[in-house]
């Protein structure tokens, strides 16, 4: 009696997957446009990536290799759970290596290692509507997208400069896709915005609670909004990663003790490990370091 009722491949039933694939195709056909879809209940709470999981479930096949990151890390709760979920319901190979993965589901980061053609990046999106906090009416925001009325988006950036002397939006920084739709790139740090521009990888966005899917096809223009006299710029860090010594990567602050000690380390754990394997060391690097899972084949 080892056989219990099995799930359909990748949890969702085939009709649902077809419905979601149609939404994805429409999203790809109209880059940046939010396609409504009939989001399903998933065995996890809203806000934990129900949109991303449904997109991944709809595009994953038995030969895919899945990587899941949460704020850049492969070893945090959300990432571990979603990876385990797909290992169980789709029996696919999983990996932590960016270069090995065919599908990368992400919560709020884009890997440091440049993505390649054929890879798919699936974003988990909490609020897909970039105009939401400026215009609460959905009927109105849809009309604004339809008529390309995006002056309001700049009002937000104006407010930032008026208040802080610079554009203080650091994540969920609005972008214009292929010169048409203004899109919320999900709460990724604006550091990652340039990586979306003309990326060879397909980028899919799923918002489960808000029931929207949108997409950026490969090699699509993604331009961050700005003012002529206050151009878009990404965050810079004045020190390298404390563990691998990397520069020009996105760093997380880690508190070390309760006396104000802290260090900055790569938010992308895979990138950090790769660099240490290659012999790079930061000033706080441990002598030996544990190696994470790497690639686990399907069983």
């Amino acid at each position: 009696m080892t056989d219990i009722a099995t799930y359909n491949f990748a949890y969702l039933d085939e009709q649902t997957k077809r419905m979601i694939r149609r939404a994805i195709l429409k999203g790809i056909a109209i880059p940046g446009y939010q396609v409504p879809f009939a989001s399903r209940e998933m065995p996890m709470p809203y806000g934990w990536g129900t949109g991303g999981v449904q997109v991944t479930a709809s595009i994953i096949g038995p030969d895919d290799v899945l990587k899941v990151i949460d704020q850049g890390a492969d070893d945090t709760t959300n990432a571990v759970s979603i990876r385990a979920f797909f290992k169980k319901v789709a029996n696919v190979a999983v990996t932590t290596e960016t270069g090995q993965a065919t599908i990368i589901q992400t919560r709020h980061r884009i890997p440091e290692q440049p993505l390649t053609a054929g890879q798919v990046l699936v974003f988990q999106v909490p609020i897909p509507e970039p105009l939401r906090f400026l215009e609460p009416r959905e009927t109105e925001t849809r009309k604004m997208h339809a008529l390309e009325e995006y002056g309001l988006m700049h009002v937000k950036l104006y407010e930032d400069i008026a208040r802080h002397g610079r554009i203080a939006t650091t994540y969920a920084y609005p972008v214009k896709v292929e010169g048409r739709y203004v899109m919320d790139p999900s709460p990724t740090p604006k550091f990652d915005n340039p990586k979306m521009h003309r990326s060879p990888a397909l980028q899919l966005f799923g918002a489960g609670r808000e029931k929207r899917i949108y997409a950026v096809p490969p090699f699509t223009d993604v331009v961050s909004l700005d003012f002529e006299d206050h151009p878009f710029e990404v965050q810079t860090f004045d020190q390298p990663c404390a563990i691998c010594g990397a520069e020009n990567v996105y760093l997380d602050e880690v508190i070390l003790d309760d006396r104000g000690g802290h260090m900055f380390v790569c938010s992308d754990t895979d990138h950090c490990e790769k660099r240490r394997e290659d012999g790079h060391r930061g000033h706080l690097a441990p002598e030996a370091h544990p190696v994470l899972g790497k690639t686990e084949p399907a069983e």
Partner: peptide, 24 residues
């Protein structure tokens, strides 16, 4: 008016809506 954005942005909104992109 947009009650939650500053007076300056309220005046500037129309300019931005017609494509003005110079903050100064």
């Amino acid at each position: 008016l947009r009650m939650t954005v500053s007076a300056g942005a309220n005046v500037g909104e129309r300019l931005m809506a017609v494509g003005d992109r110079h903050y100064g």
